[in-house]
Design a protein around this nucleic acid. Structure first.
Length: 192
DNA sequence: AGGAAGATCTACT
DNA sequence: GTAGATCTTCCTA
């Protein structure tokens, strides 16, 4: 199991978001491991990005986080759901990557119990859904996905071939002109 | 206490 | 598919 190093996250958020596709997200609960393959991400920048949480009027703790150490986990609540982000940016910049969807790999039965849903495709095909399936809550805030002893981390996994596609971000009222949402083309768990 | 939120679900045309 | 209601959870005052 090869954990992605901090250096991986010390780059342009859009690059990190794109490169995270196909990687494995590992959630450790006691001795159990839940694993999902990352199939959809979005990049967010600093205050030059109107959709970013670094802009004025957003909670301060989020702003601070965006400037924090790359590889750190940022979790916040939207409506009644949790969203899972990883801090990613170049030195002295701000940014993060939002994990929007994963493909369940291991611990599927456990995920189903957490989500209370019958359809496998509905298990983790959205940012609020995957946090439910993996029991991701505020408690994981501040962990590092770069450490294999943290309750959640990201590993390289097997090399698999796939096509990457991109689009504009979802649910964002004031978006940047660039396309900052990345996903694996044709994957069943990509949200719509 | 209040307000705001990067979503989800349900129930329809 | 798409629109509308949802009514939780946290931070800041």
């Amino acid at each position: 199991m090869e954990v992605l190093p901090k250096k991986f996250y010390e780059r342009d958020p859009a690059k990190v978001a794109k490169d995270l596709l196909g990687k494995l997200l590992v959630r450790k609960i006691n001795q159990t491991q839940l694993i999902g393959r990352i199939v959809e991400t979005e990049a967010y920048y600093g205050k030059e990005d109107p959709a970013s949480r670094a802009v004025l009027g957003r909670p301060k703790y989020c702003v601070k986080f965006l400037y924090d150490v790359p590889g750190k986990v940022l979790i916040y609540n939207v409506h009644k759901y949790w969203l899972f982000n990883v801090v990613a940016h170049q030195p002295k910049k701000a940014g993060a990557v939002l994990i929007r969807a994963i493909e369940p790999i291991k611990g599927i039965e456990i995920m189903k119990r957490f989500r209370k849903v019958k359809n496998l495709k509905e298990l983790t095909n959205g940012p609020g859904k995957l946090t439910q399936a993996l029991q991701i809550t505020k408690e994981l805030n501040g962990s590092f996905v770069t450490q294999s002893n943290s309750p959640i981390f990201i590993i390289k996994g097997k090399k698999v071939n796939f096509k990457i596609s991109k689009s504009k971000r979802i649910g964002v009222s004031k978006d940047l002109p660039q396309k900052l949402r990345f996903f694996i083309l044709g994957n069943e768990w990509v949200s719509k």
